[in-house]
Lab assay of single mutants.
Amino acid sequence: IEKFKLLAEKVEEIVAKNARAEIDYSDAPDEFRDPLMDTLMTDPVRLPSGTVMDRSIILRHLLNSPTDPFNRQMLTESMLEPVPELKEQIQAWMREKQSSDH
């Protein structure tokens, strides 16, 4: 029984630690959010139409349809242009958020 109590305490400790580690990014500025999924972008790319999306989301879309989801023009992965300035701004915002939450 004592071992179970210790195990339960350890589990509670881990759960509390994980809860502290989770950071809420739901208040991200609109320009940091993917327009299709409304999630925080981690690897922004510009489509030929000028729309900026997260790379993982547009690549997932391209698996089903080789088109720009906003104007239905033909689109391939090679046409995606990285946006390193925005990526750095997002990373800086995330770092600031992490340091203010801890």
Rank of each mutant, 00 (worst) to 15 (best):
W93L: 03
T67S: 05
R55H: 05
Y25A: 11
Q89P: 02
L40Q: 02
K97I: 13
D101S: 04
M94F: 15
I58L: 03
E96Q: 11
W93T: 03
K10H: 07
I14A: 04
T42N: 15
D43C: 04
E85Q: 10
D27G: 13
F4W: 06
Q98L: 10
N71Y: 00
V83M: 08
K10N: 12
S99G: 10
L7H: 09
M53G: 05
G50C: 02
Q73L: 12
T42M: 00
E22T: 10
N18D: 14
S26W: 14
I14L: 13
F4M: 05
S99I: 09
E9K: 09
V11K: 06
A92Y: 10
D34E: 01
A21S: 10
M37L: 14
R33T: 05
E9R: 11
H102N: 12
V11Q: 12
M53L: 15
S100L: 04
A92E: 06
E9V: 07
E81K: 13
D43Y: 03
E12G: 07
L6F: 11
E2Q: 07
T76G: 02
V15F: 04
I14F: 15
T67I: 02
M41I: 07
F4V: 07
W93R: 01
G50S: 05
E13N: 02
Q91P: 00
A19S: 07
K17T: 12
E81N: 03
P48H: 01
D101E: 09
K5V: 14
W93K: 02
A21K: 05
H102C: 11
M41V: 02
I1P: 00
E13D: 12
H102S: 07
G50A: 02
N64L: 03
M94V: 14
K3D: 00
E22L: 14
H102A: 07
R72C: 00
L40H: 11
K10R: 12
Q89K: 12
E88K: 09
Y25F: 12
K97E: 14
K97P: 08
R95K: 01
W93S: 01
V15S: 10
K87R: 11
G50D: 03
D24G: 10
K5I: 06
E77L: 02
A92T: 10
N64V: 03
E85D: 10
V83W: 07
R95E: 08
T67Y: 08
V52I: 12
N64D: 04
E22R: 07
V83L: 13
A92D: 13
L62M: 13
M74K: 11
K17V: 15
I1T: 08
N18T: 09
S100I: 14
E85S: 04
P35R: 00
V45A: 02
R60Q: 04
K10E: 12
E81L: 03
D27N: 09
Q98V: 15
S26D: 15
E2H: 02
D101Q: 12
S65F: 04
T42Y: 03
E81S: 14
R95A: 14
M94I: 13
H61P: 00
K87Q: 14
R95G: 10
N18H: 09
I1S: 14
H61Y: 00
E81V: 13
L62V: 02
T76P: 02
E2M: 11
T39A: 03
Q98P: 13
T76R: 05
K87N: 09
M79L: 07
E9W: 03
E9N: 02
M53K: 00
K3T: 08
Q73K: 09
S78Y: 05
D101C: 06
Q73H: 02
R46G: 03
D101G: 13
S65G: 03
I14R: 05
Q73G: 02
P66R: 08
I57T: 15
E88D: 11
S65C: 01
V83K: 05
L7S: 09
E96N: 07
P84R: 07
P29S: 04
E85G: 13
L86Q: 04
M37T: 07
P29T: 06
Q91A: 03
L80Q: 00
L36Q: 00
A21G: 07
E12H: 07
K17N: 12
K97H: 13
M41T: 00
I23A: 13
V52L: 04
N18I: 08
L7R: 09
N18K: 07
N64H: 05
L7Y: 10
Q98H: 12
D24T: 02
D30V: 08
T51P: 15
S26K: 15
A21P: 11
I58T: 03
E2P: 02
V52D: 00
A21V: 10
P35S: 01
L80F: 08
D27Q: 12
M94L: 13
N71S: 05
E13K: 08
I23F: 13
S78G: 13
V83Q: 03
V15Q: 15
Q73A: 15
T51I: 15
R20A: 13
I23S: 09
M79K: 06
M53F: 01
E77Q: 05
W93C: 01
P66L: 09
A92I: 01
D24E: 14
D43H: 06
K3S: 04
K5Q: 10
K17E: 13
A19V: 11
Q91Y: 09
